[in-house]
Simulated scan of single mutants.
Amino acid sequence: MDLLSPFTDPATVAHYAASTPQKVPGFADLQRMAMLLLAERAPAAADILVLGAGGGLELKAFAEAQPRWRLVGIDPAAAMLDLARDNLGAHMAQVRLVQGLIDDAPSGPFDGAACLLTLHFLPKAERLRTLQELRRRMAPGAPLVVAHHSAPQEGDVQTWLARSIAFANRVTVDFAQASATATTMAQHLPVLPAEEDEALLAEAGFSDIVLFYAGFSFRGWVAAA
């Protein structure tokens, strides 16, 4: 399965900004928490790297809250970067958008980095390499905020994905359909148990790794480079 293909589909791109907040519990609060965790350690005029920035939702939230931040957003999907430009509007003055993967990001050093709703698309080995490349671009002690699908423990992936899918359906509650969809998702998304996600952060060289967010199958951590 080409995991990039949904983000090149015109219908998916057109509905992304409206549908994503419905899928992720406390989506706006997650963005604000990420901003606060970055701002806690970063200087007032910080350089912040956002990996998986297509759509521009977190870039806009960060730019609105921190008008002195200089933001670099990386995403492999050109259509999603076009959507980011539309969503950012005047805030594009604070943002540089780059099409590509982590290897295409500037060398930094960045005062902080965020990767929201992205790492669950990457197989374990590529996820580790991506985290290592992120850390290499960050100043010592700079904060990293990540959030993505992550099961509480081994064997729980489909159960928690089904709960997230049921949450996203604002019209009906159909657990049978949610379970069937979760089975398909679990076959294509390399979702890891939370302990493995934390171990990858540590293996990539991050320290002070702390869980700050959990909502059904989604979990978020803050760590220091």
Results as ranks from 00 to 15, higher is better:
2 D>S: 05
6 P>T: 03
7 F>L: 06
8 T>W: 03
9 D>S: 04
12 T>Y: 14
14 A>M: 08
14 A>H: 08
15 H>C: 12
15 H>T: 08
17 A>P: 01
18 A>V: 04
22 Q>E: 13
22 Q>P: 04
22 Q>S: 13
26 G>M: 04
31 Q>F: 08
32 R>E: 12
33 M>D: 13
35 M>K: 03
36 L>A: 11
38 L>K: 13
39 A>Q: 13
39 A>R: 13
41 R>C: 09
45 A>R: 15
48 I>Y: 00
48 I>A: 00
56 G>K: 03
62 F>P: 01
64 E>R: 14
64 E>I: 15
65 A>L: 11
66 Q>F: 02
66 Q>E: 10
68 R>V: 10
73 G>W: 10
74 I>M: 08
75 D>C: 06
77 A>M: 13
79 A>K: 10
80 M>A: 01
80 M>G: 14
83 L>C: 10
89 G>K: 10
89 G>N: 08
91 H>W: 14
91 H>V: 02
92 M>C: 09
93 A>Y: 07
94 Q>D: 04
95 V>A: 11
96 R>L: 02
97 L>A: 05
97 L>K: 02
100 G>R: 03
109 P>G: 06
113 A>F: 01
118 T>E: 01
119 L>D: 03
119 L>I: 02
121 F>T: 00
121 F>S: 03
122 L>K: 05
123 P>F: 11
133 E>R: 07
139 A>E: 12
142 A>P: 09
142 A>H: 00
144 L>K: 01
145 V>D: 07
146 V>W: 00
147 A>M: 11
151 A>E: 05
152 P>L: 06
153 Q>N: 08
155 G>R: 11
163 R>Y: 07
163 R>P: 02
167 F>Y: 15
169 N>R: 11
170 R>W: 15
171 V>K: 14
171 V>Q: 14
172 T>W: 08
173 V>D: 15
174 D>G: 02
175 F>W: 14
175 F>G: 05
183 T>Y: 01
184 T>Q: 04
185 M>T: 06
185 M>E: 06
186 A>H: 12
187 Q>A: 13
188 H>L: 11
193 P>E: 00
194 A>N: 11
195 E>V: 08
196 E>S: 04
197 D>L: 06
198 E>M: 09
198 E>Y: 08
199 A>F: 03
199 A>T: 00
202 A>H: 08
204 A>C: 01
205 G>Y: 03
210 V>W: 07
212 F>D: 12
213 Y>I: 00
216 F>H: 12
216 F>Y: 14
218 F>T: 04
218 F>Q: 04
219 R>Y: 05
219 R>W: 15
224 A>Y: 10
